[in-house]
Each structure stands twice: as structure tokens, then as C-alpha cells.
């Protein structure tokens, strides 16, 4: 336990000292929201049931981008780089429990991602007349399940990548299509039918839909299946990620 808290503390410091991860997770999403707001405004729009504006739709969707940025870029590159430079090897040569390392890494990445999402929501409320009709606790649960699912994919990319460079490439291959086609960067309501069909294939689409549904207080029956599947994949994914974690 002592080494877990120490590892988490050191990892948090190292995270903040890494400008790219810090920027993309904590600053970039809020910046994107402010930019979109400046361009599109937040007036109720017929495209979004005439009651919601662009920013109302974008805020929960951008939460998925914060997750994706950590999961597909931050985690795989950081872990693959630590393995490539034999840092993991040195840690393994101590009595440190392997689970303590993975837990600390997960904890720090999740905390930073959550903070990025909170900054994003805060920016939305401060700059625009943001609507929220859901339950915060439920949103937190859905966000956590989404993050853990995506993170386990991130750890698996790290396992598959012999170098940080390959991890970065694989991460980008997942990040960009998911970002643009899931409805995270642009609301799905704006897509033509053909793009919507591709969008249905993106795993992140389901995270965006779930976060939006909860955000606007839709009835439970509407997102029950997605919710349950996401929680189950989060548990299964983490199990796989821990089991297949490679130290060298």
C-alpha cells in the first residue's frame, strides 16, 4: 500500500512534467469547446430537437475525447516508452508488486482524465448557458466505465507495441477515426446516412451516445444495454490488460 501511494504520487508528478499528455488531456478539450462555441454558438438548433444547442451536445461528447486522448495516445506511448528504455525492467528488479504499478498508473491517468472532463464542463458552464438534465453520479459511473474500457485498449496497444513510435502510430490509427466518426468532434445529427453507418462501427460512438443520454436525463431504458455492456467490457478489458501486461 505504501508503495502504491508513493508510485501514484511520483507518477502524477511525472505526468504533469510531460507537456504533451498534460496539454491534450487537461487543456485541449476545454479549448476545443470554447473554439466550437465561438464558431457555432449555443442557440437551440432544429438539428438537435430544437431545444439544445451545439455546445449542449458537444460537452458530453468531448468528455469521450478526453478519454480517447488518454487511452489511445497518453497511455500506450508512455508505457511502451518505459518498456523500450528498460525502465519497467528496473522496477521489476525490486519487490514492487506488479499490480501496484499498474494500479498507480491507472489511477493517475484516470484522475487526470476526470480532471480534464471537469475543466471542460466548467468551461461550458462559465462561457455558455449549458443545459444539464441528468444525474451527476450516474454520469460519473458511465464516464468511469467508458474510461476503463478505453484505457484497457490503451494498455493492450502498449503490450503489442515494441517501441513508443509504434504505439503512437497504432494509437493515432484508433484515435482519429473514433474522434471524427463517433460524434465526439461533431454531433452525429450532422452526419449523412452513409457516415452514420460507419459511425455505428466505432466503439466510441457508444460512449458518446451513453454520455449524451445521461447528460440530458433520458430514461434508463434507453441506454440500459449500452451501459451494461460498457461496464462488462471495462471489467473484461482490465483483466486482459493486466494479464497481458509486458515488462520487457
Amino acid at each position: 500500500m505504501q508503495s502504491l501511494s508513493k508510485l501514484a504520487l511520483v507518477n502524477a508528478k511525472l505526468y504533469i512534467r510531460e507537456p504533451a499528455a498534460f496539454f491534450f488531456t487537461l487543456i485541449f478539450p476545454a479549448m476545443l469547446l470554447l473554439l466550437f462555441g465561438a464558431i457555432f454558438g449555443n442557440e437551440p438548433d432544429p438539428a438537435f430537437h430544437s431545444t439544445r444547442g451545439f455546445i449542449d451536445m458537444e460537452t458530453p461528447a468531448l468528455m469521450a475525447i478526453v478519454i480517447a486522448s488518454s487511452a489511445f495516445m497518453g497511455i500506450p506511448i508512455a508505457i511502451a516508452s518505459l518498456r523500450e528504455h528498460r525502465v519497467l525492467r528496473r522496477l521489476r528488479a525490486t519487490p514492487m508488486h506488479p499490480l501496484a504499478f499498474i494500479s498507480a498508473d491507472l489511477l493517475v491517468n484516470f484522475s487526470m482524465t476526470l480532471m480534464g472532463a471537469m475543466l471542460l464542463i466548467l468551461a461550458g458552464f462559465m462561457a455558455f448557458d449549458l443545459q444539464f438534465h441528468g444525474a451527476w453520479l450516474l454520469l460519473l459511473v458511465a464516464f468511469t466505465a467508458s474510461a476503463l474500457t478505453a484505457f484497457s485498449v490503451g494498455y493492450l496497444i502498449a503490450t503489442l507495441s515494441p517501441t513508443a513510435r509504434i504505439a503512437q502510430t497504432l494509437g493515432m490509427v484508433l484515435f482519429f477515426p473514433n474522434m471524427f466518426l463517433s460524434g465526439a468532434a461533431f454531433p452525429r445529427e450532422m452526419f449523412p446516412e452513409s457516415i452514420k453507418r460507419i459511425s455505428d462501427l466505432m466503439p466510441m460512438t457508444y460512449m458518446v451516445n451513453l454520455l449524451q443520454a445521461i447528460w440530458f436525463g433520458q430514461p434508463w431504458s434507453e441506454y440500459r444495454t449500452t451501459f451494461i455492456i460498457l461496464v462488462l467490457t471495462a471489467m473484461g478489458g482490465l483483466f486482459l490488460a493486466v494479464r497481458h501486461f509486458r515488462w520487457e
Partner: peptide, 9 residues
Amino acid sequence: LQESNLQPR
């Protein structure tokens, strides 16, 4: 170890 490193920062 013969070849290893710590976290750069």
C-alpha cells in the same frame, strides 16, 4: 542491471 533506465523526468 546491465542496461536499464529510470523515468526521464
